[in-house]
Computed example of a mutant assay.
Amino acid sequence: MKSKNILLVLLGLVCLALLCGVGYTVYQGKESQKEPAEEKDYQEEYLTYNGKKYKRNPDIYTVLFMGVDKEAQAEVGNQPGDAGQTDSLNLLVMNRETKEGKIIQISRDTVVDLDIYDTNNELLMTTEGQIALQYAFGDGKNRSCRLTGERVSELLGGIEVDSYIALSLDGIAAATDVIGGVTLTVPEDYTEIDPAFYAGAEVTLDGGMAEKYVRSRDVQSLDSNNQRMERQSQFMGALIQKMRNLSLEKEEYVSMYQEIEPYVTTNMTADELADLAEYKYAEDMLELPGEVTEKDGYAQFVVNAEEMKTILVKYFYKEV
């Protein structure tokens, strides 16, 4: 029943690094990984919806949070990829004018056009497949993150992915243990995952239990990833709440983050990471609309483009 999948708890991890202003201390030196930003003319990016004209909102900034299973391999069109898979994708959408943030969940099964590369990074072909597989055809670090970000951008009709943060599989247990566990109430019966996960149980998850709670799913059920995403949302909320309740000295936060840093890949600078702490984040997470289908024995999540357009207009555009 169990499949190697992962919750992206990176918003919580960033809070760990940033509370009490420790972001710069931890992340100084990361700036060299940041690529020059491409100049864009937002005034030319228009969209018509329900008879009204909108333009891209230049105040929107996005960060793609990825949970990566480094051990998972992919094979697309007889081309193997061994850099891992992104089993959790969450896009943090921030409005720099209002200082508000929203998290949009993207199913790892979402159908996109994948770019398949050989070992020399030469493009071999583009073919349809699950978005989780794109990461496998990079370097397992920054290039894999950029490739995945490109697929997310295409999925969202050209919305830019400005930055990214990825957490590898082993980071789940480390993140949970370093803050002393995460307490939550199990919403329904998950005793097949762990006997302690019965409906209504209040459990304090240690690292090992947290990993099971957010990774496990019934691979025989096509919609099992949707159930897992619900648990992921719940766990992320509980983790962030735990962060807010912590009262530690600056040096303690630095020490905690140092335990997690080996599992993190990011192209964000110290100042950009510090900025994340200034936003007020909505507690509820938004899922892209669509339906689960089956192809060649695998689940595929097909996004409803028309319903997604409503989301794009609301969060990425403003009326002219």
Rank of each mutant, 00 (worst) to 15 (best):
L18Q: 08
G12E: 11
I6G: 00
Q33E: 12
L18S: 15
L11I: 05
D41G: 00
L10A: 13
Y24T: 08
L11A: 03
G29Q: 03
E35H: 00
K4M: 14
C20M: 06
L8T: 13
E38P: 00
E39T: 08
V9N: 13
Q33I: 05
N5W: 01
Y27I: 03
C20T: 07
A37M: 05
A37E: 10
T25I: 07
Q28S: 12
C20K: 11
K4E: 14
L8A: 13
L19M: 10
V14Y: 01
V22E: 13
G23Q: 02
G21D: 13
V22G: 12
L13Y: 01
G23H: 05
N5Y: 05
G29C: 02
G12Q: 11
K40W: 03
C15V: 01
V22Y: 00
Y24A: 09
A17F: 02
P36D: 12
I6L: 11
Y24F: 06
K40M: 10
C15E: 15
G12Y: 08
C15T: 12
Y24C: 06
L11R: 11
L11D: 14
A17N: 02
G12D: 08
K4W: 10
N5F: 09
L16Q: 09
K30N: 11
L8Q: 03
E38S: 00
G29P: 02
Y24M: 13
C15H: 09
V22L: 00
V26R: 00
S32Y: 02
G23I: 06
V14T: 14
V9Q: 05
A37L: 07
E39Q: 12
L10R: 03
